[in-house]
């Protein structure tokens, strides 16, 4: 072979990763999802040390490094802490535009992310004003729930 026999652009070999996982959600999140699915309620877990109500619930408090025990229902109303409106399409993610917000549900110490729906997102500035930090929302529960985070969404009040 000559030193430089290549006549085409460098080759590209296509490949795809298809790795299926069955994530064990564990006993704590299982209880959270069952309560969400069967009763339409959002619950957090309370740290016995700092008394923080962690939502979504954690089996332990990262700060105090102790297990959490007590369940506390929170919401369904809450306060927006941060949000974004996505206008760019990303592979494998939903069709834009969509809004995501972190909301501190009433009674919780931490904020939980979910979609904000039932809101016109066509004008970014107008939508952003409606979603301003501090504004109030409520959790709206789907009629058919499957035990997943997307069983509810936030709606402006």
């Amino acid at each position: 072979m000559n030193q430089k026999e290549q006549t085409e652009a460098p080759l590209i070999h296509s490949g795809e990763w298809k790795i299926h996982y069955d994530y064990a959600v564990g006993e704590t999140a299982t209880q959270f999802f069952l309560r969400l699915r069967d009763q339409g309620k959002i619950a957090g877990k309370k740290c016995p040390s700092c008394q923080g109500v962690l939502v979504p619930p954690r089996a332990f408090c990262e700060r105090c490094f102790v297990q959490t025990e007590e369940w506390v229902d929170v919401g369904p109303e809450g306060t927006i802490e941060a949000f974004t409106i996505v206008y760019e399409p990303f592979d494998g993610l939903p069709e834009p535009p969509y809004a995501v917000a972190y909301v501190t549900l009433d009674g919780a110490t931490t904020a939980m992310a979910n979609f904000v729906r039932a809101l016109d997102l066509s004008d970014p500035e107008v939508a952003a004003r409606q979603l301003a930090v501090g504004n109030r929302v409520e959790a709206v529960f789907a009629d058919a729930r499957e035990g997943a985070v997307t069983d509810f969404y936030y709606r402006l009040m």
Binding site: A24, G26, E27, A59
Partner: peptide
């Protein structure tokens, strides 16, 4: 064989 009672993070804790 399976620790389905905990999610990975709880296993680490």
């Amino acid at each position: 064989g399976r620790r389905d009672d905990v999610r990975l993070e709880e296993l680490i804790f």
